[in-house]
Computed example of a mutant assay.
Amino acid sequence: MAKVQQFSSWLTKWFTLVVVLWAILNFFEPQTSLWAKSYVNYFLSIILFGMGMTLSIEDFKRIIRMPLMVIVGTVAHYLIMPLLAVLLCWIFRLNGMLAVGVILVGCCPSGTSSNVMSFLSKGDVALDVSIGLLSTLCAPFMVPLLMSALASSYVQIPVEKLFLTSVQVVLIPVALGVIVHTIFGKHVQKVTVALPAVSQVAILIIIGVVVAANNAKLFSAETALLLPVVMLHNLSGYTLGFLFSKLMYKIYPKGFRYAQQKAITFEVGMQDSALGATLALQAFATNPIVAIPSTFFSVWHNISGSVLSTWWVRHDAKHGIEADSDTGTIHRGTKQVKLGAVQA
């Protein structure tokens, strides 16, 4: 298991670069991953089964213990990102399947990468995990509902297919993972060390399938606007998520402090793009182009999340802001004490 952990740590460190190189390989050699096109739902199920195996009853109790923050964070995610997607489609005049793809990734739950970014930025990881869990469990209901409301003007939305696929690849695997963890307890910990690597490999396969299936259209004139749209979608999500959490601090300062604001920022701005790509390939099988925005998002939000978390840590260290700060503002009194100590 030591070698598995070592490989997992290496893959986590270089995951964004590996994703880019893997995408390039599949762009020029589409046969590399096309074989897996019919199995993407199984690969996503493996990812979410692994997620379920890392969860315990305590994780669900945490949602009950702090319901306001978790519910508010989840609502913010499902409100901000879908509406941003619609707005960007209108601004950039995207139509048809491309617009459906952008809105689909906007309607997905928050991505597991946000947990890592929240940890790196010294945010509230427990809140991050709780929001991610609740948004994921709501996905089979929220994704079809939001897609029907926001994307039906572009094409007919297969609501039933979205729902059934979401249940199949989200709820059932997560539930099974939790059951396995509950029954086997500590024995599962011997296996969970390999789960990050397994999940990342599964994500790579899904990305490879999307790139391979769309290699003729990936960088065509038709899809030229998708990259800036995806970048703006993600960055605007961070911005609005942070502003929303700052507003909530004014309403409920006890709960929405600096660490919680960081968690909500990442939870709002980062999407489960692997789920978006899988739903696109399953529910819109004849139009794989719908999965392209999810693939772009998968690469980009890992880059932006890493940059933002690194900047946040350096900013806090530079200004002497503690991780348990109320608002993240510089405490002048503390600064004066430090200066006085130096002068003495």
Results as ranks from 00 to 15, higher is better:
residue 314 R to E: 06
residue 94 L to T: 02
residue 249 Y to T: 07
residue 87 L to A: 03
residue 199 S to M: 09
residue 283 A to I: 04
residue 223 T to R: 11
residue 278 T to A: 07
residue 211 V to F: 00
residue 296 F to R: 00
residue 223 T to F: 04
residue 271 Q to P: 01
residue 1 M to Q: 08
residue 206 I to S: 09
residue 71 I to L: 06
residue 60 F to W: 07
residue 111 G to W: 02
residue 277 A to Y: 05
residue 283 A to M: 13
residue 104 L to Y: 07
residue 12 T to K: 13
residue 310 T to S: 07
residue 203 I to R: 06
residue 209 V to W: 08
residue 49 F to Q: 07
residue 334 T to E: 15
residue 259 A to F: 03
residue 271 Q to S: 01
residue 21 L to Y: 12
residue 7 F to Q: 08
residue 192 T to G: 09
residue 142 M to W: 07
residue 124 D to I: 02
residue 250 K to E: 15
residue 47 I to W: 03
residue 83 L to F: 13
residue 278 T to M: 04
residue 242 F to S: 01
residue 235 L to T: 06
residue 46 I to N: 01
residue 106 G to T: 02
residue 49 F to R: 01
residue 299 V to L: 12
residue 135 S to R: 03
residue 64 I to A: 13
residue 230 V to S: 02
residue 126 A to G: 10
residue 296 F to T: 01
residue 229 V to L: 10
residue 221 A to C: 09
residue 286 T to F: 14
residue 222 E to F: 04
residue 301 H to E: 09
residue 340 G to E: 12
residue 142 M to G: 08
residue 278 T to C: 03
residue 298 S to F: 11
residue 230 V to L: 08
residue 14 W to S: 08
residue 280 A to H: 04
residue 307 V to F: 15
residue 165 T to L: 14
residue 320 G to E: 00
residue 164 L to A: 06
residue 158 P to C: 05
residue 109 P to N: 01
residue 147 M to D: 02
residue 317 A to G: 09
residue 24 I to C: 05
residue 149 A to S: 03
residue 283 A to R: 05
residue 337 V to A: 12
residue 60 F to H: 04
residue 136 T to Q: 08
residue 77 H to W: 13
residue 273 S to Q: 06
residue 87 L to G: 00
residue 224 A to Y: 11
residue 305 G to R: 10
residue 75 V to A: 04
residue 223 T to P: 11
residue 79 L to S: 12
residue 136 T to N: 04
residue 249 Y to G: 06
residue 72 V to T: 11
residue 187 H to C: 11
residue 244 F to V: 04
residue 285 A to N: 08
residue 136 T to M: 10
residue 191 V to A: 15
residue 315 H to G: 00
residue 32 T to S: 12
residue 334 T to H: 15
residue 319 H to I: 02
residue 56 S to W: 01
residue 245 S to G: 03
residue 275 L to I: 09
residue 341 A to M: 15
residue 206 I to R: 09
residue 255 G to I: 01
residue 343 Q to P: 15
residue 192 T to W: 05
residue 17 L to I: 15
residue 211 V to K: 00
residue 133 L to W: 11
residue 219 F to L: 03
residue 12 T to Q: 15
residue 37 K to N: 15
residue 207 I to K: 05
residue 122 K to Y: 04
residue 18 V to P: 09
residue 269 G to E: 07
residue 25 L to N: 00
residue 114 S to H: 07
residue 266 F to V: 01
residue 9 S to D: 15
residue 188 V to L: 11
residue 49 F to V: 05
residue 68 L to E: 03
residue 8 S to M: 06
residue 149 A to Q: 12
residue 290 V to P: 10
residue 206 I to M: 10
residue 43 F to I: 02
residue 235 L to S: 04
residue 51 M to R: 04
residue 194 A to D: 10
residue 273 S to K: 06
residue 252 Y to E: 13
residue 335 K to S: 14
residue 301 H to T: 03
residue 213 A to K: 13
residue 331 H to K: 14
residue 39 Y to I: 10
residue 238 Y to E: 00
residue 226 L to R: 01
residue 116 V to L: 12
residue 242 F to V: 08
residue 126 A to I: 06
residue 341 A to T: 13
residue 108 C to R: 10
residue 136 T to W: 02
residue 49 F to C: 03
residue 237 G to K: 00
residue 93 R to W: 05
residue 292 I to W: 06
residue 204 L to N: 03
residue 22 W to C: 09
residue 137 L to F: 08
residue 47 I to R: 00
residue 171 L to C: 11
residue 135 S to P: 03
residue 141 F to S: 05
residue 11 L to F: 14
residue 342 V to C: 13
residue 282 Q to T: 14
